[in-house]
C-alpha cells in the first residue's frame, strides 16, 4: 500500500460522507430524514437518512453500540417507554410523521409489530399468547380462526395444534420465538421489526426463523437488526451498515455508513469501514 492510498483511506474514514448506493426506492414505507435519537443528553445515533422499501427485508448491521437497535425501536415508538429518550429529525411512515403531535403511539404499534431478542412469551397458554393482541385491540371476527391462521403463518401450527391450552413456557426457545412472531402477525401489522430475533437461538432454530422471514417477505415489510453478517447476507434484500464514531469528547455515536442492495454491499462495499467490518477485521 503506498502512502497516498493510505492517506486517502484515512481521510475517507474521517469524513462525514455516507455512501447511499440505492437512494431511489419507490413508495418507501419509512422515510428517515436526519434522524437522531438521544437518551437524555447522550446522542445514541446521529443524523440518519434512509428509505425502507415496501415488502422487502432490510437488515441493519454493525458492531455493538452503533445505535442500530435504538434506531429500530424508534420505528414503532418503543423508545417512548424509556425515560429521557427523544428523537430529532423526521421519521415518516407512508408520508406521515410518526412523531407528529396527533400521532398516538399505541396506534403506531398496532400497525408496526416487533419481535425481540429474547422470546418474550407471556405467562399464558399458547392460545392466549396469540389471542392477546386481537383481544387488547378488540379485533372483530372469529378468534379461533385468527389464532390458527397466525400460528400457521408462523410455521408453528402443526407443532402446537393439540396443545393450545398448554403454557407457552413449555415450548422450546425456537418455538417460543415463532410464537412471538405468530402473536405479532395476529394483530395484522404491515411492518414487522425484528431486533436480533435469533440471538438466543441455536443454528437449527435460527434456520427455521430465516425460512419464515422469507415466507413473510412480500406480504410484510421486515426490518431486522442482526449481529450476524451471514444472516443479513442470507435473508435481506437491502442492508444498512452502521458503526460507532468516537467524537472529541470521547462519546460514541452511531452513524449510518453505507446503505444499499445486500448483494452489492457485501460484494463491493464502497466504504473502507464497511469492507473492514464484513471481512471481519473489526467489530
Amino acid at each position: 500500500m503506498n502512502e497516498l492510498d493510505a492517506s486517502i483511506r484515512i481521510a475517507e474514514s474521517l469524513s462525514e460522507t455516507r455512501h447511499e448506493v440505492s437512494i431511489d426506492i419507490p413508495n418507501p414505507v419509512f422515510t428517515l430524514n436526519g434522524v437522531s435519537v438521544y437518551y437524555g443528553e447522550y446522542e445514541a445515533i446521529r443524523d440518519v437518512s434512509l428509505d425502507i422499501a415496501q415488502g422487502e427485508i432490510t437488515a441493519f448491521i454493525g458492531p455493538s453500540g452503533c445505535g442500530k437497535s435504538t434506531l429500530l425501536r424508534s420505528f414503532n415508538r418503543m423508545n417512548d417507554l424509556i425515560v429521557g429518550a427523544r428523537i430529532t429529525g423526521r421519521l415518516a411512515y407512508h408520508g406521515t410523521d410518526l412523531y407528529g403531535p396527533e400521532v398516538d403511539p399505541i396506534e403506531v404499534r398496532r400497525r408496526i409489530g416487533m419481535v425481540f431478542q429474547k422470546p418474550n412469551v407471556f405467562p399464558k397458554s399458547i392460545y392466549d399468547n396469540v389471542a392477546y393482541g386481537p383481544r387488547v385491540n378488540k379485533t372483530k371476527g372469529n378468534l379461533d380462526d385468527l389464532v390458527e391462521e397466525s400460528l400457521t403463518r408462523a410455521a408453528l401450527w402443526d407443532e402446537v395444534k393439540d396443545n393450545l391450552k398448554k403454557s407457552a413456557y413449555a415450548l422450546s426457545g425456537g418455538q417460543q420465538q415463532r410464537l412471538v412472531i405468530a402473536r405479532c402477525i395476529a394483530v395484522r401489522p404491515e411492518v414487522i421489526l425484528m431486533d436480533e430475533p435469533c440471538a438466543s437461538l441455536d443454528p437449527i432454530a435460527t434456520a427455521k426463523i430465516e425460512d419464515l422471514m422469507h415466507e413473510l417477505a412480500g406480504d410484510y415489510t421486515i426490518v431486522i437488526v442482526t449481529h450476524n453478517m451471514q444472516q443479513a447476507a442470507r435473508v435481506s434484500d437491502r442492508t444498512a451498515f452502521f458503526t460507532a464514531e468516537v467524537d472529541d469528547a470521547g462519546e460514541r455515536h452511531g452513524r449510518l455508513i453505507e446503505y444499499g442492495p445486500t448483494r452489492q454491499l457485501f460484494s463491493a462495499p464502497v466504504d473502507q469501514r464497511t469492507e473492514d467490518y464484513i471481512s471481519g477485521r473489526f467489530g
Partner: peptide, 21 residues
C-alpha cells in the same frame, strides 16, 4: 421488562399491560 415491551409492541395500553401481563 421484556414482557412489558412485548405487550406494548402489540398495541396494548398501560392499563392492559398491567392487568393482563
Amino acid at each position: 421488562s421484556g414482557l412489558r415491551d412485548g405487550s406494548y409492541a402489540l398495541g396494548a395500553s398501560k392499563r392492559q399491560t398491567a392487568t393482563d401481563v
